[in-house]
């Protein structure tokens, strides 16, 4: 192997990589929050047995889960302007990631809700809890606790998927890497560092999620 390693292009442009990593974090955190806000009502609608609503949610889930993410993001960035809906590249990336993770998270949350024993709901009714209290304390919270590990691995997968948003000129970590690579041709060094940065980001998200899980789902041992 005669390859001469040269990390100077990476070191000299490290500020671009840091900026890209910050955008990747922003996009991921934003999409996780918005995706969760999409998933909970969608899963509730699907399990509540309201036919037209459940049907709409199913259409959304099936369309998103059966089309490639790259095509979804191209559609949002290049096709929606024809309908007068225009986003700048980073916003389009956030919208696409949110809509995408929302569909997957809906199915995960639905599985959690369906795992709740009907007897528990009836117990809540017998205790005189109101509908929204039953949903929040008896259905949603235990459901989320059950599916939390599956949900967080979906979120980490989302952060890794966000690396394709450079296709619409969003300025995330992968885009910063592509820019440096195509200007300096130091492909091995650039992608090695990018890989390491994504790995560290994944570990960071993973640690954060397990901290949140420990704090939010400690009950019923202690409240």
């Amino acid at each position: 192997m005669n390859y001469q390693f040269n990390f100077a292009p990476v070191i000299n442009n490290f500020d671009q990589l840091i900026y890209g990593a910050l955008i990747t974090i922003q996009l991921s955190v934003g999409a996780i929050l918005i995706g969760t806000l999409i998933a909970i009502p969608c899963a509730a609608a699907k399990t509540a047995g309201i036919k037209p609503l459940a049907w709409l949610v199913n259409v959304y889930i099936e369309v998103i889960r059966n089309t490639p993410f790259l095509v979804q993001i191209f559609f949002i960035y290049f096709s929606l302007p024809a309908l007068g809906i225009r986003f700048d590249p980073n916003t389009a990336a956030l919208v696409a990631l949110s809509v995408n993770v929302g569909a997957y998270a809906t199915e995960i949350v639905r599985a959690g809700i369906e795992s709740i024993n009907r007897g528990q709901v009836e117990a809540g009714k017998a205790l005189g809890l109101k509908g929204h209290q039953i949903f929040r304390y008896i259905i949603l919270k235990p459901a989320l606790r059950t599916i939390y590990p599956a949900l967080t691995s979906q979120f980490i997968y989302l952060m890794l998927t966000s690396s394709v948003v450079s296709a619409i000129s969003a300025t995330d970590l992968a885009a910063a890497g592509n820019n440096i690579q195509s200007a300096t041709f130091a492909a091995f060094e650039v992608y090695l560092v990018i890989t390491a940065m994504y790995f560290v980001l994944s570990l960071g998200f993973s640690g954060l999620f397990s901290f949140i899980g420990r704090t939010a789902f400690r009950y019923p041992l202690a409240r």
Binding site: Y77, F78, A82, I168
Partner: peptide, 18 residues
């Protein structure tokens, strides 16, 4: 300056009004 992966995608950005 918005950087796309190739000319075809840059043209798409122009044609779609982005």
């Amino acid at each position: 300056i918005q950087r796309f992966d190739d000319d075809a995608t840059a043209v798409q950005a122009l044609l779609s009004g982005q």
